[in-house]
Amino acid sequence: MEFLSNYFNFRIVGQYTDVFIEGVLTTLVLAGICLVLSIFFGIFVALMRMSSNPFVWRTAAAYIQIIRSTPLLIQIYLIYYGLPFLIGNFFGEEATAIIALTIHSTPYMAEIIRAGIASIDRGQSEGAMSVGMNKMQNMFYIVLPQALANVVPPMLGQTAVLIKDTSLFSIIAVFELMGAGLRMYSETVIATESYVTTAVCYLLIYMMMLVFSNIVQKQLGGGAWQTAH
């Protein structure tokens, strides 16, 4: 124990428990809001991407490609400095960060949802059409519910990425888990305890995600569903 405490001072970490708990909760809340928003917009971008109108699908494709080939950091900077230019200093830092991360993760969600929609058998749509549903009803009552259920595993993977991406918020001074580590470092100037604790907190969140996704994979649809995918 003597040896260990030379390298890692638990007492100082203990003093910062509240900060880290707050950081974990803020990270989860911010990531949760971004997740819900990006799934919501992702459905629309996926539908736009699958549209037969060339203007619509090319717009969606351009959006997806541009976001996927530029770093999140640059996107955050552009939104953070650009939004006040466009609509004035209306949002706080948290809202700006949420907007930036939502814009960033929507294309990834859209691609996942598009794969899910493509995986639904054509007979489903044809059946829906033949009982008199229109295109909209077919999409929202028949195809999308099945598609979303199919893409839960990759979506959970994307959620894990989303949670990790919130660490960049610390650069634009939004307090979250990484921010908690940086605050501890700036107050105590001991790098090891501050950053190792941050990493351990992220790993705990990641493990929770792993356990959760295992449960989901076991529960969702049972064995037949798993063999089909």
């Binding site: 990790k164 610390s170 990484m178 950053y195 990493a199």
Partner: peptide, 16 residues
């Protein structure tokens, strides 16, 4: 390495 953000890994390797 998959469970922590790259930013944290960078801080760990550069500062810790």
């Amino acid at each position: 390495f998959r469970g922590t953000p790259y930013l944290v890994q960078l801080y760990l390797i550069y500062f810790v």
